[in-house]
Simulated scan of single mutants.
Amino acid sequence: MRITYLPDEAVDEALDAELRTLLTRCFGGAFRSKRYHFEMPQHRWLAFDEDALAAHVAVHDKTFACGERAVPFIGVAEVCVAPPYRGRGLVKALLKEAEAHFRKGPFAILLGDLKVYGSSGYRPVHNVYFPFEDATKPQPGVLVKPLRSEVWPEGRVTIEGPLF
């Protein structure tokens, strides 16, 4: 299995079609609610088996607000593995590559299931708000992994824009 990093500008029309096919296969109709459908991620990690696209992880360069402080983070999105390749540790391998690339940012954030991402070091937090979705209550399912020694802030953490 070969893991490849690609900035968004390196994705050509043929690969974009392949990615959209994989994402639709993994997410079904829910793909239309995924950020990739609206806004391209700046970074991608892809796993290939020979020439077949087996898995994908997207990363958005983002910033959250906590009080007056703006904190950069990576927003991990569209994590998916084609059915024939599931159970081979591809999610963990792709996340490890992406996180290593961004050691300068203090946190990686994703929306997901702790059972899937907990073994990669992600932990739930309950103070993240997406005003684009609902500014009155924290977003459920937010998982965070520190990429440096910083501690996750207390108080309201606000992330502008759609869910990723």
Rank of each mutant, 00 (worst) to 15 (best):
F107N: 02
E18Q: 15
I159F: 01
T4W: 08
E39F: 06
A54Q: 06
K104M: 06
R35G: 04
D49Y: 12
V76Q: 09
L53I: 10
F38I: 01
L163Y: 06
E18L: 14
R156D: 04
I3F: 10
V144Q: 06
V116K: 03
F102Q: 06
G155Y: 03
P140N: 07
P84A: 12
P106F: 10
A70I: 06
A54K: 06
L53Y: 12
L53V: 06
Q139Y: 07
R32G: 13
D8A: 08
R86Y: 05
D16A: 15
D51F: 01
A93T: 10
E99P: 00
P106D: 11
A100V: 00
F38P: 00
R148P: 02
Q139K: 14
G87S: 05
A82R: 08
W45D: 00
M1R: 04
C26L: 13
A70S: 13
R25A: 15
A82P: 05
A54M: 09
R156V: 14
W45A: 03
S119H: 07
A47T: 06
R86P: 02
E68Q: 11
V128K: 04
A17P: 02
Y36A: 15
A30H: 11
R25H: 12
C66A: 14
C26K: 09
F38K: 11
V59K: 00
M1E: 00
G118L: 04
E150I: 09
P162F: 10
V144N: 02
G75H: 08
T24K: 15
C66Y: 03
Y85A: 01
A54N: 05
T4R: 13
F48G: 04
D61T: 01
S119A: 08
K145Q: 05
F38A: 12
W152Q: 07
R25S: 13
W45Y: 12
L110S: 02
L19V: 13
A14I: 15
L46F: 15
E39L: 11
S149M: 11
K96P: 00
H60F: 13
T158K: 09
A52T: 15
F164Q: 10
K115A: 13
L94A: 10
T21M: 09
Q139H: 09
V142S: 05
G118K: 04
A10V: 03
A108Q: 07
E68G: 08
A108Y: 01
M1N: 02
K34L: 15
E50F: 10
P124T: 01
Q139T: 13
D8Q: 08
R156G: 03
Y117R: 00
A98Y: 02
Q139V: 04
A55R: 07
P153G: 05
L23Y: 14
A100P: 00
E50P: 00
D134Y: 07
C66G: 02
P7S: 06
V79P: 05
E78L: 07
R86Q: 14
F164G: 14
D134K: 09
R44P: 00
E68P: 07
G89S: 04
K104F: 04
D51V: 10
P83Q: 14
R123K: 06
V79G: 03
V142F: 02
